[in-house]
């Protein structure tokens, strides 16, 4: 199970290097973080979180493709289940917040004085 990779082996298979997949995953996670930091509307923050979750899923798929196993794909399925539950509860919270305060601006919602 030693990684036996040289540049010659890479060009022979003509497959994507694992590092490039991880780089794209890192870029997606950074874009998601950027969105969460930038936006103040709760809906947009939730959408940016989805982008970051997709980056994490892509990293798992890259690892699965590196070793040629199904385990990484299984974890992406778990990420999807987690995202579905997170979006359902998050959107219910957003609807309730909007009903009570008529705003989604995260800077106005400071009654907890955090």
């Amino acid at each position: 199970m030693t990684p036996q990779v040289t540049s010659a082996a890479m060009s022979a298979t003509a497959a994507v290097p694992t590092g490039h997949v991880l780089a794209v995953a890192a870029i997606l996670i950074a874009i998601g973080t950027f969105g969460v930091l930038l936006r103040r509307n709760l809906i947009f923050m939730l959408m940016a979180l989805e982008v970051a979750l997709n980056g994490a899923a892509l990293a798992f798929i890259g690892a699965a493709a590196r070793w040629g196993t199904a385990d990484g794909q299984v974890f992406v399925l778990f990420i999807m289940v987690m995202a579905a539950a997170e979006v359902a509860v998050g959107l219910a919270l957003i609807l309730q917040i909007y009903r009570r305060t008529s705003t989604l601006d995260a800077d106005i919602l400071d009654t907890l004085q955090g």
């Binding site: 990779v5 540049s7 298979t13 497959a15 290097p17 590092g19």
Partner: peptide
């Protein structure tokens, strides 16, 4: 990531 030695993914 890109500074580390690159390893190819499996084509299958």
């Amino acid at each position: 990531i890109l500074g580390a030695p690159q390893q190819a993914t499996q084509a299958a």
